[in-house]
């Protein structure tokens, strides 16, 4: 037997849209390098048409995902954590390469990201009780406020925190029944594209999360102005882009989450969920049991 180094098999990184793994319709790719400038892979350079297709997929999936029981959504989010745990080493490597971290620091990021899925998995069937409830109106009416998902949310993922940050912005959006069109970190998209592979095998219905690699500055304006998108998370946009996108988002009054200083290692609150929830209030008469006169 000859002593020969085995030539490894490269992975072709592809988009994750509607539960499938397409290349960019534009046929474009761009070079992704590690923090030292070494070539890692070619990633699809998504176009506005890819973004448009992702919105179609997200819209198609939204009703079913919002209509699934909160318990089922929790099970699926937990399943994502399970699947990630199994591919932990791969993500540690990709995060280390992407962010120039040591193995142990990258591992801490991946572990925190896995735990974040678990955190949000538990929230799916609790948030309605925390932010909704019965309102004691002054009249013979039963009055109940419940949170509902806003709909299709465009997410501009953080540029620096390629995986923990990414998970921290996707999970709260979908936990409550929204679907997401995610623009991954432009310079470090590989953990995001690999996450698509995990989501595809976690019982998450196709289209609930759609992941695009490329330029937020190219796709963002189209998604921000898109009339079938209901909200936009600007976390990964710089100040100028964020302002432009917020202006464009006014076209159909999208709910806008502005960029802010954020340490993703810290325990999240509920505000990333509530940013993409609507409150619906339903009234119904109660009245007395019999025709005794007047409930007033």
């Amino acid at each position: 037997m000859s002593e020969q180094t085995r030539l490894s098999v490269f992975k072709t990184y592809k988009l994750y849209v509607g539960g499938k793994f397409p290349r960019s319709e534009s046929g474009r790719v761009y070079e992704v390098t590690d923090s030292k400038g070494n070539w890692l892979a070619n990633a699809p350079l998504s176009s506005r048409k890819d973004a448009r297709d992702a919105v179609v997929a997200a819209r198609k999936a939204q009703g079913g995902w919002a209509g699934a029981t909160a318990y089922l959504r929790g099970q699926i989010l937990y399943r994502v954590a399970e699947m990630l745990e199994g591919r932990r080493d791969q993500f540690v490597r990709e995060v280390a390469d992407a962010e120039g971290l040591s193995k142990s620091k990258a591992a801490a990021q991946v572990d925190a990201a896995i735990d974040r899925w678990v955190w949000y998995a538990g929230w799916t069937d609790k948030i309605a009780q925390v932010v909704g409830g019965a309102n004691p109106v002054a009249g013979p009416f039963f009055n109940l406020s419940t949170p509902e998902p806003t709909g299709v949310v465009t997410v501009i993922a953080p540029q620096e925190s390629s995986f923990l940050g990414l998970v921290s912005v996707i999970a709260p959006v979908i936990a409550t029944g929204n679907t997401a069109v995610v623009i991954a970190s432009e310079k470090a998209p590989l953990p995001a594209l690999s996450l698509g592979e995990v989501l595809a095998t976690s019982d998450l219905p196709g289209g609930v999360v759609n992941i695009l690699s490329g330029k937020a500055s190219e796709m963002g304006p189209h998604l921000a102005a898109h009339l079938d998108v209901n909200a936009i998370d600007l976390t990964g946009a710089d100040a100028d882009l964020a302002r432009d996108l917020e202006i464009a988002a006014a076209e159909n009054l999208k709910r806008v989450l502005r960029p802010r200083t954020e340490d993703f290692a810290e325990s999240p609150g509920t505000d990333r969920m509530t940013a993409f929830l609507e409150t619906k209030t339903v009234w119904h008469p109660t009245g007395s049991l019999g025709a005794s006169g007047s409930s007033y």
């Binding site: 008469p285 109660t286 009245g287 007395s288 025709a291 006169g293 007047s294 409930s295």
Partner: peptide, 11 residues
């Protein structure tokens, strides 16, 4: 007949 609506109209 919705009792509350009926009584509201009468009131």
């Amino acid at each position: 007949v919705d009792a509350v609506g009926l009584e509201a109209r009468a009131a």
